[in-house]
Nucleic acid binder design. Structure first.
Length: 508
DNA sequence: GAGTTTGAAACT
DNA sequence: CAGTTTCAAACTC
């Protein structure tokens, strides 16, 4: 009854706007809850783009494989502007999960025990295609859905189609709800800030983090009781858990994943998160190794940049922490790909795009000139020819030919001084610039596209070519990154095996 | 589906 | 801040 009323009253998922009627700080905290953080942070946005592009890259690379299309995102819910369902972050990260990466596992995984449909239902996983379903449905009985026990409430959503009893987390109980929110925020101003969020510190703090850390005692952090495990992230030094097994390289975790193939997607997602952690820098407690990816090298020579300093990371991390019982972890790409690299790479892409634009405009000029010349057919042009057209063509060719070199060298240039004489960029390229208009890229000389230019955007074959260049470059970047990750992973595995073998032999 | 376990939230 | 209670999700049978 209550549910049908709710359904009628709220055809779409509504979300609390905790900002209404609260102080500025309260607003900030409350708004953060249930709001997709990724798009709000340039770096986070870049992450999501990287992930999305990585996914398309992966699909493209494996187009010939037999993997059926599996990643099908559910339709987005219509919510208040700038707000997204709380489960959207996992969805975004989930772009990397499922089959494309699975073949990298050493052995095919035998299904030992499948998750029950009920379990999947509880986990909001579609029992057919494995995709996340819509918003969670709580089952609260005593909290009136006005405490953080209630997942809907905690996520900043109104209850909609839930199985709760005496629910006050509805629009018709707005006053009640506000009162509860007020009380909770008074107790803890950060109560509604996401526990799992993209780090605001970016490079220094890792890409994805559990703000508070879990406190598990008995679950080994390998069950969904554990917030970290549930959020598909590895436990960190922020956690106060006991007997944690949710760290990279954990045998228990491996065993669990082997026994439960459904969890592989989680593992892969964790790997993705870990990769992000590594890609965007590591927390201070997880000191990076002294090697970083050098994009000037190709992957075929990747052993050159995979430093011999690589060690079994769990061991290294454990030796570096004050708490030996709490194993740290490291993603294969941790410490290799730094935020600066990504920034530089974005600059590179912009540069490629800008050069393409420049080249194109020169070509246009050249064509125009030659047309003028042929139209007038005067000897003046030939006798006084300044060779501009040739020069332009030459420049154009040189630019094209120089792309490779520029690409090779630009990554080492971090000051952005090389980015000059820009032309208007396509929307796709602008999107690739990761909303950093306010900082480096569009600081001074980038004029907004004129109406004429805008009207022709997307139809101009030049933009197609421009985009092709950028995406091609990005693809090769990802390929290198993947290979580098594979190599690191293999190394870590090899070191781990070596260590276990040596410990076994020493035991005897 | 009922009962148990678990850990976060709430409370003292 | 630590200990206890409450709560609802996760899990087991």
């Amino acid at each position: 009854m209550e549910q049908s009323e709710a359904a009628a009253a709220a055809p779409v998922v509504r979300q609390l706007d905790f900002s209404v009627g609260y102080s500025a700080s309260t607003k900030a905290n409350a708004l953060a809850k249930g709001v997709l953080i990724l798009p709000e942070h340039p770096q986070a946005q870049l992450q999501s783009k990287l992930l999305a592009l990585a996914q398309s890259q992966h699909l493209h690379a494996r187009a010939s494989s037999s993997s059926p299309p599996q990643t099908k995102l559910p339709p987005r819910k219509v919510v208040a502007p700038h707000k997204s369902p709380p489960q959207e972050l996992p969805q975004m990260v989930g772009l990397l999960k499922s089959k494309p990466i699975a073949p990298r596992l050493a052995h095919p995984v035998k299904p030992v025990k499948t998750e029950s449909p009920r379990s999947r239902e509880r986990c909001n996983i579609d029992s057919k295609d494995g995709t996340p379903k819509k918003q969670k449905q709580c089952n609260c009985k005593n909290s009136r859905c006005l405490k953080l026990y209630c997942e809907c409430f905690a996520a900043g959503s109104y209850c909609d189609n839930c199985n709760c009893i005496n629910c006050h987390n509805k629009i018709e109980h707005e006053a009640d709800r506000k009162g509860s929110i007020d009380a909770i925020l008074e107790r803890n101003p950060n109560a509604f800030t996401p526990k799992i969020a993209n780090s605001p510190h970016g490079a220094t703090d890792g890409g994805v983090e559990h703000k508070k850390g879990c406190n598990c005692k008995k679950s080994g952090c390998l069950k969904r009781y554990c917030e970290c495990f549930q959020a598909n992230i590895l436990c960190s030094d922020k956690c106060k858990c006991m007997d944690c097994k949710n760290f990279e390289g954990s045998e228990e975790k491996k065993a669990l994943l082997q026994g439960h193939p459904e969890n592989q997607s989680m593992s892969i997602q964790q790997a993705a998160n870990s990769a992000i952690n590594g890609a965007f820098g590591t927390p201070p407690s997880r000191k990076s190794r002294n090697h970083q990816i050098d994009f000037r090298e190709t992957c075929s020579t990747s052993s050159a940049y995979c430093s011999p300093l690589s060690v079994h990371v769990s061991k290294l991390a454990a030796s570096m922490t004050l708490e030996p019982s709490k194993p740290s972890y490291r993603a294969p790409l941790a410490g290799i790909l730094q935020l600066q690299h990504v920034k530089d790479f974005c600059r590179l892409l912009v540069e490629v795009s800008a050069e393409a634009a420049e080249s194109f405009s020169e070509e246009k000029k050249m064509i125009k000139n030659s047309m003028d010349v042929s139209a007038t057919e005067t000897s003046v042009a030939s006798s006084h020819g300044d060779g501009k057209g040739d020069q332009s063509q030459h420049d154009s060719l040189r630019l094209c030919g120089n792309h490779e070199n520029r690409l090779q060298t630009l990554l080492s240039e971090s000051d952005g001084s090389c980015i000059q004489n820009r032309r208007p960029l396509s929307p796709e390229t602008l999107a690739l610039m990761c909303d950093e208009q306010d900082t480096t890229f569009l600081s001074t000389s980038m004029p907004p596209p004129t109406t004429t230019e805008s009207s022709t955007l997307g139809l101009n074959p030049f933009y197609v070519e421009q985009e092709r260049l950028v995406l091609t470059r990005f693809r090769s970047f990802l390929n290198r990154l993947i290979t580098c990750g594979c190599i690191e992973e293999t190394k870590i595995g090899w070191e781990a095996n070596k260590d276990s073998c040596s410990s076994l032999s020493s035991d005897r």
